[in-house]
Design a protein around this nucleic acid. Sequence first.
DNA 1: CAGTATCCTGCAGGATACTG
DNA 2: CAGTATCCTGCAGGATACTG
Lengths: 139, 139
Amino acid sequence: MVVSAPPEYGVDMTDDLAYDVFARACPSRGTLEHVTGRWGSLTLGALYDGSFRFNELRRRVDGVSEKMLSQTLHALERDGLVHREAQPTNPPRVDYRLTPLGREIAERLIGLIGLVEGRMPQVEAARESYDARRAATTV
Amino acid sequence: MVVSAPPEYGVDMTDDLAYDVFARACPSRGTLEHVTGRWGSLTLGALYDGSFRFNELRRRVDGVSEKMLSQTLHALERDGLVHREAQPTNPPRVDYRLTPLGREIAERLIGLIGLVEGRMPQVEAARESYDARRAATTV
DNA sequence: CAGTATCCTGCAGGATACTG
DNA sequence: CAGTATCCTGCAGGATACTG
């Protein structure tokens, strides 16, 4: 798996677009960041349980601000992972749920999260041993 | 999958530690961010191909700075996903490779990445339809 | 209720210089 | 070669106020 473009790319180009160059080199990168990012992953995780309204989601996705939830949902909707259904009532009622594509991706994401969570004892042990080694070397 | 802690947590506590509270609520979150983050994922992807020296990795992980690669490798080593082998020669030679745990996690990560990449045509189609709808509504 | 708009700040992370 | 140290800045994202 090679993720590189020639290193010169970021340097000499039309300027100030280094990030875009990066994105262009790997177009799935954007979607991947929506999926794995802090709010994206939590939102997909929350929606994996069903359909929710905006403020229900806010309560389920701990710590998310209105702004970030709104932004995250827009990104996921645009990528076709989340379906937004607005009823033109007053007050408005909007429900969000995963699309089949979103569900498929959320499944894999949750698989990865589950694996990492399941291996946390090993990770914690590695951390302790690493810290102990460091302390021994430094002191 | 519930990722929430009571919303009050972030607000009333010993102050300025909202992020730590968040991390404490979900201890695997840190490792997950090392794995899915921009440089972490690219580094795991690069190391999936074999063992590499520091500057070899820098060349494989497009756009990474010395600082970020160093920081990323430290985090992954501490979590037990990457093994660092230093030969006490002069000039020094240091090789990095995945541990079995790192390989296991990288496999799933690459699975997720592969799935997203494979679904990009669907994602692009969704984006176009989304943008078209937006344009139609706005104009 | 379901958002958008604006303003503001901490910190991820780049650039640069230096070291064993 | 394989890093660490320092300085600096853009922007993710929070707080707050407002709207259909």
